[in-house]
Amino acid sequence: MSVLVYADNHQGKFPKSSLEAVSYAADIAAMLGTDAVAITTGAIQGDGGLGQAGASKVLHAAQVNASDSQQMTRVIVAAAAHVSASVVVFSHDIAGKLVAPRVAARLDAGLVPGAIAIPTSDFVVKKNVFSGKAIADIALNTANKVITVLPNSYGVKATGNTAPVEAFNADAGAAGIKVKEVKAESKDGEIPLPEAEIVVSGGRGMKGPEHWGPIEELAKILGAATACSRPVADIGWRPHHEHVGQTGVTIRPNLYFAIGISGAIQHLAGVNGSKTIVVINKDPEAPFFKAADYGIVGDAFEVLPKIIDAAKQFSASK
């Protein structure tokens, strides 16, 4: 009776969110006195670091199309049977949102989406609700259980182990969809927003797309991703995938810089899980200061160059 965890990879590379899910599954397995078996698809190298994150074994279903939720579900349900798993873990990432609900329905399992801590011994799991404004303790009542782990909310282990990789050739059945094309949006070296540890974000206070230079520069120096408020994406100053908030992307970075953003509740809903929040706004009454850890009341165009200089010195001294 192992715990099964699906680890999504992007062209063979496992993002942090997948490793977090593996470590989370390994901790549940330790609680249950068993091991965590990972399953993945596509072309991978070695165990892809999944053993290091806590997997005892990697089942490799090389041929399955990860975009086809029906095929993925058949394979993962077969893997759960193969290792007698009654607990199946996913990341609450794009792949997890696509496949975990199907697997839960197939196994007639309760599902807690976006868990932020490992379950108690009687399987009560914490998750954020009301867009981060509250936390719920949710009990899983069913024999089979599915949990998806909120990215950036669980630490990745370093066990020092490598996991054996085993080919897993379950029948995926008929295809339900056809992938016509994959378009890369982010440029090379750009960090995908949901995975970024540091995010530098700009709002309408930046006055226009031509003023984004300092935001991009600060992000580059700090190895951060860039983001923006909704109106900024809506008027086309920045691409839509940068829009954070209730109707955009939800992020939980270690450090969030909000520059020229007023801090409307709908914006906060997408970023209030950030560990440290820095707000730069010329209006001392801006609501964002109430959610901030550090604040600078001032004109972004005067403040940013000073911060950029300090960041350059800091990164040179590292």
């Binding site: 007639d108 399992a109 309760g110 599902l111 807690v112 009560v124 954020n128 609700v129 981060g132 404004k133 509250a134 936390i135 719920a136 303790d137 949710i138 009990a139 899983l140 009542n141 069913t142 209030n272 707000v279 200061f289 109430k290 959610a291 901030a292 850890d293 550090y294 604040g295 600078i296 009341v297 001032g298 004109d299 005067e302 403040v303 940013l304 000073k306 911060i307 200089d309 300090a310």
Partner: peptide, 25 residues
């Protein structure tokens, strides 16, 4: 399949520390 056992509010922020714009660095 699941039941909510209870709700809690996230830990409150300890308050914002201000840095003057002159010392932004």
């Amino acid at each position: 399949s699941t039941t909510v056992k209870g709700y809690s509010l996230p830990p409150a922020k300890s308050g914002c520390k201000y840095i003057t714009p002159e010392n932004a660095g």
